[in-house]
């Protein structure tokens, strides 16, 4: 029926654009970023910016002029940040908020999230190469090297969780995030199981690189490659990249929560618990890490990812397979 179809489409659009994707994720992401900057300042014995500073930055960027370099490929240059933003809004709508939001199975599952997670990095690479700047090109090559290094452990961690849930439910693998969350709601979080800790650690190691945070902010290092792919961006497109990174932070952290500790009450308290978890994970896993450790070189970072998170992810996968 056309009526049913349109209401379905509307609810999907609402999920992608307002809650939990788009607007909601953006607000949460900006507040997380503000908290992160404030705590980082406190850890360095500074006062730090106001909590809403990332929002002020966005509003400011929206009012600046957009400059496009002469040698840039203009349509691609301007489309790249939009592609990144849309992919992240979509990904946010795919990840359940335990007890509050269950994604429509029509939208997709863990594998789609995996693909969408790669899009912002690709958007950055396209942006870097389309800008025509040599710094952008360096950032592009670094982003690519880093992506090859961290995608392996990520894939293995996702498969570990999928297999664990699948085996527990009598099947082989379950790529449905809703299933994974529901299973943990009933049988306790995976984080309580010591055999899942290697996989969790590998996941923790994955998000500084994915979010572009020290010690793995090598592609966008402002003191070495002048913010790499973002060098030639100004005004609204740069603001879109900031939106993208705020959304990405929420998506990656929510994914971690959904995979490892989604237990939460239903309704409004569930949402509060989710936000609290996001805050704790962001402050402990991102802020403290980036304040404590300086930036690595690209070869060190790639080697690090090929050694430790890879080993941890393999150990996690082996543990799940042998225990089953």
């Amino acid at each position: 029926m056309p009526d049913m179809l349109s209401s379905d489409t509307l609810s999907l659009l609402f999920a992608v654009l307002v809650f939990p994707g788009g607007l909601f994720a953006l607000c949460v992401g900006l507040v997380l970023k503000g908290l992160d900057r404030r705590l980082a300042a406190r850890l360095q014995r500074r006062v730090g910016p106001p909590l809403l500073q990332p929002l002020f930055d966005l509003v400011k960027l929206a009012r600046k002029r957009t400059l496009v370099p002469d040698i840039a490929c203009k349509p691609v240059f301007l489309a790249a940040p939009m592609v990144g933003c849309v992919s992240m809004a979509l990904a946010a709508a795919l990840i359940p908020i335990p007890g509050v939001y269950d994604p429509d199975p029509l939208l997709g599952d863990l594998l789609v999230v995996l693909y969408l997670l790669a899009v912002p990095a690709v958007a950055l690479m396209i942006a870097g190469s389309a800008s025509g700047s040599s710094y952008g090109a360096i950032g592009f090559s670094r982003e690519m090297a880093l992506m090859l290094a961290y995608e392996g452990p990520l894939l293995m961690v996702l498969v570990t969780v999928a297999i664990k849930t699948g085996l527990a439910q009598g099947g082989v693998v379950t790529f449905s995030l809703s299933e994974i969350v529901r299973y943990q709601q009933e049988h306790g979080a995976y984080l309580a199981d010591p055999w899942m800790w290697p996989a969790f650690l590998a996941f923790l190691a994955f998000f500084p690189a994915n979010l572009g945070i020290a010690p793995f902010d090598i592609p966008e290092a402002e003191s070495e490659v002048l913010e790499g792919p973002l060098l030639e961006y100004s005004g609204p497109p740069l603001g879109l990249f900031k939106v993208m990174s705020a959304l990405k932070a929420v998506v990656v952290l929510s994914l971690g929560i959904a995979l490892f500790f989604p237990t939460a009450p239903a309704g409004a308290p569930g949402l509060l618990v989710h936000l609290l978890k996001l805050g704790v994970l962001s402050l402990a896993g991102v802020t403290v890490l980036r304040t404590a450790i300086g930036r690595m070189r690209i070869d060190q970072a790639v080697l690090f990812y090929l050694k430790w998170p890879e080993a941890l992810a393999i150990a996690g996968l082996a543990a799940v397979l042998t225990l089953a």
Binding site: R42, T291, A292
Partner: peptide, 17 residues
């Protein structure tokens, strides 16, 4: 050591003028 330093900084509060 760095983590201890950060914790101490947090406890001592900002030293900003």
């Amino acid at each position: 050591n760095m983590l201890m330093l950060l914790l101490r900084n947090l406890a001592r509060g900002p030293s900003t003028d």
